[in-house]
Amino acid sequence: MSTPATAPPQPDTGEQAPPVSPLTTKEGRRRYVEHETIPPKLLPATERAAL
Rank of each mutant, 00 (worst) to 15 (best):
Q10G: 04
E34C: 05
A17H: 03
A5K: 03
K26V: 11
P39G: 05
Y32A: 15
Y32E: 05
V33K: 10
E47H: 02
T24K: 11
T37L: 11
S21G: 04
L51E: 14
L43W: 05
Y32D: 09
A5Y: 05
S21H: 07
T6C: 03
T37G: 15
A7W: 08
E36P: 01
Q16M: 07
A50V: 02
T37W: 10
T46A: 13
P18V: 04
E47Y: 01
L43S: 07
T3K: 12
V33F: 04
P11D: 10
E47D: 13
Q10F: 01
P22D: 15
T13Q: 04
K26N: 13
T6Q: 12
P39Q: 10
L51G: 00
S21E: 12
R48Q: 12
E27C: 01
G28P: 07
E15P: 00
T25I: 03
V33A: 13
L43G: 01
A17Q: 11
A17C: 07
E36K: 15
A49G: 07
K26D: 15
P22K: 00
R30I: 09
Q10P: 01
Q16D: 11
A49V: 05
T46H: 13
I38M: 07
P8T: 05
K41A: 13
E34K: 08
P11N: 03
L43M: 10
E15H: 02
P18T: 08
P8S: 09
P4Q: 06
T46M: 05
I38E: 12
E47V: 12
V33H: 08
P9G: 03
A5T: 09
G14C: 06
T3A: 15
E15I: 11
T24H: 06
M1D: 10
P8I: 03
E47Q: 11
P11T: 04
T13Y: 08
G14M: 03
E47G: 00
A50S: 14
H35L: 12
A49W: 00
T13W: 01
P8F: 04
P11R: 08
S21D: 08
L42I: 07
G28N: 04
G28Y: 05
L42D: 13
G14W: 01
G28R: 02
L23D: 12
T6V: 11
R31Y: 02
R31E: 11
R30G: 02
A7M: 11
A45H: 02
P4T: 06
A49P: 00
T6S: 08
L43R: 08
A17L: 12
I38A: 07
D12H: 05
A45G: 01
S2M: 07
T6A: 13
P4E: 11
L42G: 11
R48N: 12
E15Q: 05
S21R: 11
A45M: 02
V33S: 04
L43Y: 06
S2G: 06
E34Y: 02
V33R: 14
R31P: 00
E34M: 11
Q10S: 09
D12V: 04
E47S: 09
G14T: 02
Q10Y: 02
P4H: 06
R30T: 14
R48F: 12
I38F: 03
P44K: 06
A45S: 07
T37Y: 13
P8K: 05
V20A: 14
T6I: 08
G28E: 03
H35C: 12
I38Y: 06
G28M: 04
I38N: 10
